[in-house]
Computed example of a mutant assay.
Amino acid sequence: MSEEPSRHDPVEEDARIDALDTRLKAAKEREEARNRTQAHGADANYRMGNRVLAELLGGLVGGALIGWVIDWFAGTSPWGLLVMLFMGTVVAFRNIIRMSNRPPD
């Protein structure tokens, strides 16, 4: 029985495999570099989002609590609560605007 000769030269196949390995290694390095920069930016954006949420909730809850205490002691229900809730909202938005106008690190 005669064997059919190989269509590809083994040396040529080795060169193609080596070239493929080189390209694969370069692609992995580019992907790792891209993931490192994205992870750093995502962490910073995540922290900034949490800070904005904390400012907003803190202003609303803090203003409502202070207003409720004023109403409790002064007997001005519901005006102390409403005024301080409004003031807490204004302060929260002022802080958020100040954070958004600050240049990035």
Rank of each mutant, 00 (worst) to 15 (best):
I66T: 11
M87Q: 01
S77Q: 14
G88L: 05
G88C: 05
L81V: 04
W79I: 06
F86Q: 06
G88D: 02
G63F: 12
V91P: 07
V61D: 05
M84I: 00
F86L: 05
T89F: 13
G63W: 14
G88K: 04
L81A: 06
W72M: 15
G63K: 07
L85H: 00
M84C: 06
V83N: 03
V83E: 01
G75P: 15
A74N: 14
G63S: 07
G67M: 02
M87G: 01
W72R: 15
V69Y: 12
P78G: 06
P78I: 08
A74F: 08
T89M: 05
L85C: 11
G67S: 04
F86K: 08
L82I: 15
S77G: 03
G75V: 09
L82W: 15
V91I: 10
W68C: 15
W68D: 14
A64S: 15
S77D: 14
W68Q: 10
A64Y: 14
V90C: 01
G62W: 13
V69N: 10
V83A: 12
V91E: 09
G88I: 00
L65G: 12
M84W: 04
L65F: 10
V91L: 15
L85A: 06
T89I: 02
V90L: 11
M87A: 03
T76K: 01
F86T: 13
V61I: 08
L85G: 06
W68I: 09
F86C: 00
I70N: 05
P78C: 06
M84P: 06
